[in-house]
């Protein structure tokens, strides 16, 4: 009766895998950042390339057209020159026919900047392992993000519907609003760039809201608490701030300059 129990066999120390510590062996963190955060930074860099391509295209096309040089009061929509933003974006929900240049976009900008603040407060709460605060600030961020996307939806529908007066087109008809082929505000490419740039940004905000909702559910379930860190909130926070950052540039180049 001889049974050999494998567990009692002595395994030589040299046969065991030890944690790897070499520089090129997975033993260190490049740039002193965790894998996830580093990859988020690189993703954001590539995303910045996309947005830079959009804004560069905007700059090139805008400089291809004549700039409007007259006074803002005398401005009329025409395909002869690039429209001035204070005459295109001058309406506010519920105040029909009132000329309020850039007021609505100012509100949208402040909402998005404020959502960035609540996001950074959520990240800060995560570093203190304060689950309730993380939940609270994530909910505020989701709320402000949703308000921003809703405002953008209103802005788009107003841009597509157009003004009461419309613009007299070359073929003698009056055209209201905009689509990808015709618009009442100016050159065709003006509306195209508006749809592509603000649309691409809005899609980013929407994805951000989905990620934040996931974060909120995971926080509530205690997933991050069990994991021992709230790094996911930090990574999604980086993404959210990037979306805010892009808006800062879109705002300057589309609405101010």
């Amino acid at each position: 009766m001889s049974t050999i129990s494998p567990t009692t066999q002595a395994i030589p120390d040299s046969a065991l895998d030890k944690p790897r510590t070499g520089t090129w062996d997975g033993g260190n963190e490049p740039l002193n950042a965790s894998y996830g955060k580093l990859m988020m930074w690189f993703f954001l860099l590539s995303d910045a390339f996309t947005f830079a391509a959009f804004l560069t295209t905007y700059g090139l096309i805008r400089h291809k057209y004549l700039a409007y040089t007259g006074s803002a009061e005398a401005f009329k929509f025409s395909t002869a020159y690039w429209p001035i933003p204070e005459k295109v974006f001058n309406s506010f929900p519920g105040l029909h026919g009132v000329d309020l240049p850039l007021a609505f976009v100012a509100l949208m900008t402040m909402i998005l900047i404020f959502s960035s603040v609540t996001m950074v407060l959520a990240v800060e709460a995560g570093q203190r392992f304060d689950k309730q605060d993380v939940q609270k600030w994530l909910l505020w961020t989701i709320l402000f993000g949703t308000i921003f996307v809703s405002c953008q939806a209103w802005e788009w529908s107003h841009f597509i519907t157009g003004t009461d007066e419309g613009t007299l087109m070359n073929d003698g008809t009056v055209f209201h609003g905009a689509n990808l082929a015709v618009n009442q505000y100016g050159p065709v490419l003006f509306a195209d760039l508006f749809f592509f740039i603000t649309g691409f940004h809005g899609t980013h905000v929407f994805s951000g809201i989905c990620l934040l909702i996931y974060c909120f559910i995971a926080t509530t379930n205690g997933t991050f608490e069990k994991r021992g860190h709230y790094e996911m909130v930090e990574k999604i926070g980086l993404y959210w701030h990037f979306v805010d950052l892009v808006w800062v540039f879109v705002f300057t180049f589309f609405y101010l300059v």
Partner: peptide
């Protein structure tokens, strides 16, 4: 290292932006 990894490509993008706006002026 991380700061420069992010900032150098961004600097090159600003170069691209300035170059293509100049190009737009030339087309104009």
């Amino acid at each position: 290292g991380l700061i420069w990894t992010i900032m150098i490509p961004m600097g090159l993008l600003i170069w691209l932006l300035v170059a293509l706006i100049t190009e737009g002026n030339a087309i104009h």
